[in-house]
Design a protein around this nucleic acid. Structure first.
Lengths: 149, 149
DNA sequence: TATTGTTATACTCTATAACTATA
DNA sequence: TATAGTTATAGAGTATAACAATA
C-alpha cells in the first residue's frame, strides 16, 4: 500500500520557491537600507546601473532591459532626473521617444553606491564559499532566463 | 599599475543579490497566480502551511515562525477565518492571546493548493538538475539562516 | 510616453487590553 | 492593594513595487 496523497513531508521549508523568495526578501531589505543612504531606491539603482552599461537608450528599451513596466519606470526616472543623475532628450528621429542617458553626477553616485553594495554583498553572502557563489549565480541566472521576461 | 576603482566588470547581472531578487520576483509571480485560483495569497498559504506543521499556536508565535510582522498577520488571519480555514480561540490561561488552529476545511484547501504548487514548482525549477536542486535549497536555507529573522 | 488606479507586501506608529513584577 | 512595565492583538497610515487600463 502506497502512502496517501497527503504528504507530511511537503513542508514550507521544503519548497524551493519559498526558500528562494524568503532569502530574496532579506537580501532586498539590505539593498534598500544601503541604497537609501545614497538617496536611491533599489529599482533606481538597477535603472542607473543598466543604463550605464548599455548607454543612452529609449525609455521603453530601458524598461525592457531592467525588467520593469514601461509605465512604472517614469516615476523612477523622474526622481533620477530631479537628482541630476540622468538627462532626457527627445529623439529627433522620433519625437515620441525620449533618449535617456547617465550624467557625470549619475556616474559618481553609481560608483559610490556600488562600492557600498559590494561591501554589503560580501557580508551578506559570507555564508557561501567562493566556489558556491559561482554556481549559485549561474543557477540563478539560468532560472531567471528560463522563467522568461 | 592596478586597474582603477571604477570597475566595468561590476555589472548588475554580476551581483548575486540582484540575481537572487530578480529570480525570486518571477517565482513569486507564479506562486501568486497558482494560489489565487484557490483564493489564497502567498502569505496566507505560508501561514496555513506553517500552522499546519506546528499545530495550534498563538498569533505572535505564528508570526515569528512565518517571518511576518505581528501587526500584518491580523488581516491575513481575518481572511483565513472568514473562509473557514482557521479558528481562533482565546487562551484561557492568558486572555490576551488567541490560539489559532487549522480547520478541516483549511487542511483540505492546503492540500489542494500544495498539489498545485508542487506541479508549478516542478515546472519552474526544471532548469535545475535534481542534484542541483538539493544544493540550491541547502544554500538558500543557509543564507536565510545567516541573515537572521 | 505618461497617468491613474488597484493589489500585495512590508514597515511604523498608536491604542487597548491583559498579564507580570514590585512597592 | 496600587503602580509600573511588558506583551498580545488590532488598526491606521505610509512606502515600495508590480500590474492593468487608458489617454
Amino acid at each position: 500500500m502506497e502512502s496517501p496523497d497527503r504528504d507530511a513531508s511537503r513542508t514550507l521549508d521544503g519548497r524551493l520557491g519559498y526558500l528562494l523568495v524568503r532569502a530574496a526578501m532579506r537580501v532586498r531589505q539590505r539593498y534598500t537600507a544601503v541604497l537609501s543612504v545614497h538617496g536611491l531606491l533599489p529599482n533606481q539603482h538597477a535603472i542607473l546601473s543598466r543604463l550605464n552599461e548599455i548607454g543612452p537608450s529609449h525609455q521603453k528599451q530601458l524598461a525592457d532591459r531592467v525588467g520593469l513596466d514601461p509605465g512604472d519606470i517614469i516615476a523612477y526616472l523622474d526622481g533620477l532626473y530631479k537628482a541630476g543623475y540622468i538627462h532626457r532628450d527627445r529623439d529627433p528621429a522620433d519625437r515620441r521617444r525620449q533618449i535617456v542617458a547617465v550624467t557625470p553626477a549619475g556616474v559618481d553616485v553609481l560608483d559610490i553606491a556600488d562600492r557600498a553594495l559590494d561591501a554589503m554583498e560580501e557580508d551578506t553572502f559570507a555564508s557561501l564559499a567562493v566556489a558556491e557563489k559561482t554556481s549559485f549565480a549561474e543557477q540563478l541566472a539560468r532560472l531567471s532566463e528560463s522563467l522568461g521576461r
